[in-house]
Write a protein that binds this DNA or RNA. Sequence first.
RNA 1: UGGGACGUAGGCAAGCGGUAAGCCUCCGGAUUUUGGUUCCGGCAUGCGCAGGUUCGAAUCCUGCCGUCCCAGCCA
Length: 575
Amino acid sequence: MSESDEKTEYLDFIREAVAEDLRIGRFKEVHTRFPPEPNGWLHIGHAKALFIDFGVAQDFGGKCNLRMDDTNPEKEDMEYVEALQKDIKWLGFDWEDRLFFASDYYETLYELACKLIRKGLAYVDDLDEEQIKEYRGTNVPDKNNITYTPPGRDSPWRDRAIEENLDLFERMRAGEFPDGAKTLRAKIDMAHPNLLMRDPVMYRIRREPHYRTGDRWCIYPMYDFAHPLSDATEGVTHSLCSLEYEIHRPLYDWFVRNAEVFPSRQIEFARLNLSHTVLSKRWLLRLVREKRVSGWDDPRMPTIAGMRRRGYSAAGIRDFLGRIGIAKTDSMVDIQLLEHCIREDLNAHARRYMAVLNPVKLVIENWPEDQVEWLDAVNNPEDPAAGMRKVPFSGTLYIDRDDFREVPPPKYYRLYPGNQVRLRYGYIVTCTGYEKDPESGEVALIKCSYDPATRGGDAPDNRKVKGTIHWVSAEHAVPFTGRLYDHLFEAERPMEVPEGKTFLDNLSAHSLTVEQDAKAEPAVADIAAGTTVQFERMGYFCKDPDSTVQRAVFNRTVTLKDTWAKLEKRLQDQA
RNA sequence: UGGGACGUAGGCAAGCGGUAAGCCUCCGGAUUUUGGUUCCGGCAUGCGCAGGUUCGAAUCCUGCCGUCCCAGCCA
């Protein structure tokens, strides 16, 4: 940025705060972290956090760590650690050699807990779960049966001697007490208006093997204690997290201050909500467990793995993340913005091919018998460097059923009896008739005549041909399965359901349509799994790993914008 | 109820006392061998509401209303 720039570049509120911290010398550098718990797959909501954590560090010349926030042995697994890394890497974020685990800090954390005990700021409590809740003074109904929050009461064990606490805590670690028998609590203020400050639990006893530390520990630190101190041991300057942790900040600061560690600053932003889907591990897990989708990487899932399989590009996702902004307002982003970003990226980079999803045969009656012509086709009109390819043309083709009508609706300018249309890169043809299957009543065959002077699609006489449709030569066609995906939920906000219903009732009935009989031009056979291409006029498609040598499977990533479909619907609604 | 936050267009989101950026959606129109792309144009006399301060308020003050979050030995 030159100094002559009148307008300073816009900084979101986090970058503004970070810049200020640097300016006043609160920190000398910027160091952030992305702290997932390895108990689920990464979704687009996490990607927003990733984008902020890594983005802020990068913008200020700092670093961002990847830290597995694994302090709960009941839910975490190495499988997730690996999946998480794969997805983060794929999205384009690089933590270099800084992959850390909160579980590596258990010893440090234990020492810090002892330090707090020695300072008289933590104690071993014998109260059980129910009692702790009761003493905390929450959810108490008053005489009018309205719940209110009276001040809590001190635990009878709150004033144990320091030596006794130290001894008990050591014995907790040594495994002398059964699960849940004792906890270590911070001694703060049982009358604090913020319930989190009413002597929060720091350690619980859980005899559960941890995926990394095995059975070395039977006590595990709680998030509120472990997180600020993990940040501190990594020298994290800015601990960025979502809004629901705002209320935890006083606690975060309390631990930092009293444990006398590096003073990381927590800043909260609004998490992402996306229309027509759900973004919570709990609900996504339920979709998987109840087999409403094929797995965490089902192309309909808002997981990164799902989007990758669907054909979304990392660049498109990153573009989206950059456009939604960062603020503290609870908001819900229209999924159409995501789709727009994906289309924009794919439009520039995806190769074009011709493929027919729902084929109907078209015969050119005046085509020389058995003749095949290999015509030139552009690979990507947005990118001349992508070059050209040859496409075989013959007298028997497939076209999409939707490109022919027995009686055309208003404004329809594709094929219908008497009308002419251009076969892309091929010839201009005129529909001379059609045949129907007597059983089904479906159109079985479309007859056309072609104009030999229009090879390649040009009209030498400059006649106006409004429609251009795609096609596939029948004898050269490569069969494939098309999986057409749509929004998982029809409702914009799937979680908003009437009494007695659940979000599962909002699941869309047509989030997946399978086309078993699709046909593509021969070049499609060479596409590698995982590659996203455009099937002209139909949309972007990604070759699925389920593909076999005999049969390719393509997932529809996203449709092209379809002005005609919109127009037709409007005309139908009017009628 | 107590505590913590947030309200600018259909959806996001700038704005930081000088007269409402931008993006998506939507609606027009031009170009087009993808009804795609691209390009032009339209879309808040108004910033949750009501008062107040000021020459001037989305920005400052007061009061109200609405929405979200917390009340796990989850993170």
